[in-house]
Design a protein around this nucleic acid. Structure first.
Lengths: 240, 240
DNA sequence: CGAGACATTGAGTAGGTTCAAAGACCGTGG
DNA sequence: CCACGGTCTTTGAACCTACTCAATGTCTCG
């Protein structure tokens, strides 16, 4: 079987990365070449994607699902340092300095590019490198926003910020439910423990604050994992 | 007077950016062209460099001194989201999303590139864009390390981490005092308040922890602003 | 239906903040 | 040269937020 055919050509046309991610800057022609080096890979929720120790052999676009990047202290304390949703990218290019773990927080679908051929593409297609730079700058901005949250916000503000962030991303990148601007919905796939590790809180505190926000009417929970933000403005105010 | 001569040609040869920063990837020829668009700019300690609100018209390399990037919450709470030492870069390229303030934490010397001509250079010199990407990735790594500190470390660990970080940077980038590996020195130009804003602590707590570390013999203070780390290993252990 | 994983809630504690006061340093001007 | 004022630092005491420990409740899946 031809290696280039292992990847279903039709997929790109419905892919988030093609619409708004890394692949959005590619000409049809460049996309063709890009397809040839790429392959899809699926991970079940909880599955390990890579750790900083081992040599990562690919760079990837997130096509669906949530990838969690964590760092661990010697005694087991964890900090989530990034949540990657489609069409974010994952993997290290250039030298790696500080190792972290990448794990599928939900079922995840990645579009993987082997290191060698990806860097070749990068050098050959300037728009691609430009786009990668832009996405990296965006990630840096997000990381800095998160530093403010971790360094200076109260527990309530942190939890409110998380809901706001997830709702915004869910409603921006998806074409779905753009209907009502002031009432956003989101599916919360993260466990309390994971939320705590992201917000720098214990999972009990996360619990209490979610309960508190529900009592205040700032968030609603119509389903098991489904949440609704009736008044975005109000939640933004309590998020700081 | 020729605009190109406004910038002293000799400076590049002793510049940190040329040795290990953005300019290190440039050929002599490209450096010549780069010089023509650059101009030096000095800021006194405490001076405002730019805020996210106003349109920044330049991108710059830090040649000497420390630049502090801060974000401010509605009620005045501050978080330092980055400390830039030579040969880091400062300024926003591409779209700006979340505004922050850049301020000179010490006397600072910048090598500024006007936006337009800098982006032109970027497109014309692939190594430059590559280098910028690498530096951005490094900054992202640093930011994520800091997220671990802010989210999960104790006050003592935070302060120890800061001393370690500053000492490492001071002794790596400078050619000075590479003498003893296990005894690093550093000059602390930041105020307690600024350290607190960086570490997500109150300045009183910073004070107490510095005192505690001195009592434990993990740091020494031979001069007003001068600190010495007698045993790097030991401090690393208490830094987590 | 029972086991295991996850979520919730309560009670006590601790680490860090806040408020307050005193001390050190520095530049300025009489 | 020294007194003065301002800024920054240090230290103490009370308080509070979030953590820890522990028990109970809930959901899912075999």
């Amino acid at each position: 079987m031809d290696a280039g055919m292992a990847f279903d050509l039709g997929r790109c046309y419905s892919c988030v990365a093609r619409r708004t991610g890394l692949c959005s800057v590619l000409s049809d022609n460049a996309l063709m070449r890009f397809k040839k080096i790429a392959h899809r890979r699926r991970y079940a929720a909880g599955e390990h994607i890579f750790s900083g120790e081992e040599q990562t052999d690919f760079f990837a676009s997130v096509c669906s699902g949530v990838v969690k990047l964590t760092k661990v202290l010697f005694d087991g304390r964890q900090q989530v340092v990034g949540l990657l949703l489609a069409p974010d990218t994952v993997g290290r290019i250039c030298r790696k300095r500080s190792p972290y773990f990448a794990e599928a927080a939900t079922d995840v679908e990645l579009c993987c590019f082997p290191h060698g051929s990806f860097e070749q593409m990068l050098d050959g297609v300037p728009e691609l490198k430009q786009r990668l730079l832009e996405q990296t700058l965006d990630e840096l901005d997000s990381a800095r926003d998160w530093m403010v949250l971790l360094g200076r916000k109260t527990a309530e503000e942190r939890v409110a910020s998380l809901f706001l962030m997830l709702a915004t991303r869910a409603n921006c990148s998806d074409y779905s439910e753009q209907i009502q601007r002031d009432s956003l919905g989101l599916d919360l796939h993260l466990k309390r423990q994971e939320i705590g590790d992201f917000l720098g809180l214990s999972y009990e505190t996360v619990c209490r604050q979610i309960t508190a926000l529900k009592k205040k009417g700032l968030i609603e929970q119509p389903g098991r994992r489904r949440f609704r933000i009736p008044d975005t403005e109000a939640l933004t105010r309590t998020a700081g």
